[in-house]
């Protein structure tokens, strides 16, 4: 358990219209929470797909210590199957891995209870609010007890209050299972609030401009957003983003 859960070494990705990412280096220690911050087009989502093994790099090496089914991804949209109930959506990854239907459903109900949706197990995605659907998506990511949890701007479509509640939920759930978490966002405060390490990226092609460690216990104590440490860290990340973008432009 001492080596990195996943790492990118001198990784670059080229698309037909040019270089999208790299070269970048990034290593994830077990249980740590890393936020990738940057403007659109900086390769955050590409980096996430590389870590998930959903995309192959053009250059460099991606190493993953996780086996099949030990990586989970939460996408920008809830990405639920509209024809399945919340419970069956959550059970899906287990069933795809060959777990029996009854066992998978029991695990799904437990996961739904953890995100506070025990009573919505039979509901279809169309009957859920945006925040509830995102919670189902989160339950689906956690039901396989992943060692690596990747979140691609998961709260982008939600209102500010729901965002904050969900951020706390993610932290609480992550504390329980202790997976390494990579969290893509372009919201600086969200990144500082959730991560132990904020990695700032710049576009054209996507590079890592620098990273800032965030002090303090995770999950965050109440009122963390109003502390001087939080303000200072957010200020530092914003400054790094600004100077890096200036240099890129």
């Amino acid at each position: 358990m001492s080596g990195p859960v996943a790492s990118l070494s001198a990784v670059a990705v080229d698309y037909p219209r040019g270089r999208a990412l790299g070269p970048v280096d990034l290593a994830l220690a077990p249980g740590e929470i890393v936020a990738l911050v940057g403007p659109s087009g900086c390769g955050k989502s590409t980096a996430l797909r590389l870590l998930a093994g959903l995309e192959a790099p053009t250059q460099g090496a991606v190493t993953r210590a996780t086996g099949r089914g030990e990586t989970s991804v939460v996408f920008q949209a809830p990405t639920l199957a509209p024809w399945l109930s919340a419970r069956d959506n959550v059970a899906l990854p287990l069933e795809l891995a060959g777990v029996g239907k009854r066992e998978a459903r029991a695990a799904a109900e437990e996961a739904l209870a953890k995100v506070g949706l025990a009573s919505a197990a039979a509901a279809r995605p169309a009957q859920l609010s945006g925040g509830m659907a995102m919670r189902v998506s989160l339950a689906r990511a956690l039901v396989t007890r992943p060692r690596l949890l990747l979140l691609d701007e998961p709260f982008a479509a939600l209102d500010e209050i729901t965002r904050r509640v969900l951020a706390d939920d993610v932290l609480a759930l992550a504390a329980e299972l202790a997976p390494a978490v990579v969290f893509v966002t372009h919201n600086v405060e969200e990144a500082v609030y959730m991560a132990g390490r904020v990695v700032v990226m710049t576009p054209g092609p996507g590079r890592i401009a620098g990273e800032i460690a965030i002090e303090g216990a995770v999950p965050r104590p109440p009122g963390f957003r109003t502390t001087a440490a939080f303000r200072a860290a957010a200020e530092a990340v914003s400054e790094l983003l600004a100077t890096a973008s200036e240099r890129a432009a």
């Binding site: 998930a52 959903l54 099949r68 989970s72 996408f75 949209a77 990405t79 990854p93 795809l96």
Partner: peptide
């Protein structure tokens, strides 16, 4: 939905599962 397809990739779905589910 391409992200839903990625989920199937991620969990190693068989071609048959991909078709029927």
């Amino acid at each position: 939905d391409p992200d839903l397809a990625r989920l199937f990739d991620l969990h190693g779905a068989t071609p048959f599962q991909r078709l029927t589910r």
